[in-house]
Design a protein around this nucleic acid. Structure first.
Lengths: 183, 183
DNA sequence: CCGCTTTATATCGCATACGATCTTATCGCA
DNA sequence: TGCGATAAGATCGTATGCGATATAAAGCGG
């Protein structure tokens, strides 16, 4: 597979575009952009990209601590959310995590298989599944408490709190606006 | 499959834990939390979760506009990043997007297959692959310019700019701290 | 009480993320 | 010059997100 990939690429290099590619590389800043006009927005100016990349950074920052627990980032979020209240349904947990059953079910099944929670149909309404942490799940949360990344954010406590509030506000505004536009 | 899943769940409900589960549901707020102590941090207090959920919200907010273009969110980010400079290598693009070849290669191959860019080995160094937008790729970027979500963020221009800066700072601090801890 | 609709969850397929590993190309240096 | 080390991409396996759909239970109108 890799060989053929390589071969194809080299063939492309032999194609009619090779010259143009070299050209674009040598003086791309000066001539290649179709319109370096005023309204041009670079990737770094997008708030959405700042959030996107900050999310990647958080996942990587947590990686080390989570590996010790044998958890992934979303699994850890689920544990924290379940810690707040026991016996939540999948939907309730989904509202907290902003996820639906198509994403949550596999995560919960995995955590169940690892012995950190139980999934049980509600006898009063067999459609619903109630989630409860096991003792091991609760211990897990304790063990994870040491993963404090506040220092890594490089923010002073008040900055931290204000940024957190603003991001939450941003999120909720986006959700509202998206729901509106869907009519 | 669903049937057996269902069956298993019902069996669990018949198990020794059913009573305890009912209990946790009926008065979970009052008694079920193991420790409503002072140091308890709820999911909503985590900055990482604010970023995580805001990222999901952005993806959903962009979904409608991107569907019209037939693009996904990361594909769109790649197009914007490529717009800035033509003939970037995969690594260079990866630095901008905070991704590596294992994630980027499939995205770029897909975009190439859709006719929006070309991937060509650099004749001067056959290890590198240079990416250039096609004419269709550049038009795509034009068509996507109308997707302005600034209004949906509910932020005033100066708030928007400040939040963007702070999130970028947060991201860069996290990356630095993560790199340090890895030695 | 029967059938139709709605609700809650699960399944499936596709597209990211990402660690580990592989292939190929280039580099360093004896 | 040749060969081990390094670099750049690509591949693979696993785990999310998520739209579309399936399944089973509950609700409900006649």
């Amino acid at each position: 597979m890799f060989v053929s990939e390589r071969t194809i690429s080299m063939k492309l290099n032999d194609g009619p575009r090779t010259g143009s590619r070299d050209n674009s590389r040598d003086n791309s800043k000066a001539s290649q952009k179709p319109k370096p006009a005023a309204g041009e927005r670079r990737l770094g100016d997008f708030l959405c990209f700042a959030i996107y990349s900050a999310n990647l950074a958080f996942g990587r920052a947590y990686k080390k601590g989570l590996d010790e627990l044998g958890l992934t980032y979303p699994q850890w979020i689920a544990i924290v959310a379940l810690w707040e209240q026991d016996g939540q349904t999948v939907s309730e947990l989904g509202e907290k995590m902003f996820l639906e059953s198509n994403t949550l079910t596999p995560i919960l099944k995995k955590l169940e298989q690892m012995g950190y929670l139980r999934r049980q149909r509600d006898p009063a309404d067999e459609r619903q599944v109630r989630i409860s942490l096991t003792e091991a799940g609760r211990r897990l949360r304790e063990k994870g408490m040491h993963m404090n990344l506040v220092a890594s954010t490089g923010l002073k406590p008040d900055e931290f709190a204000r940024l957190q509030e603003n991001v939450v506000k941003l999120r909720d505004n986006l959700i509202e606006a998206t729901a509106e536009k869907a009519e």
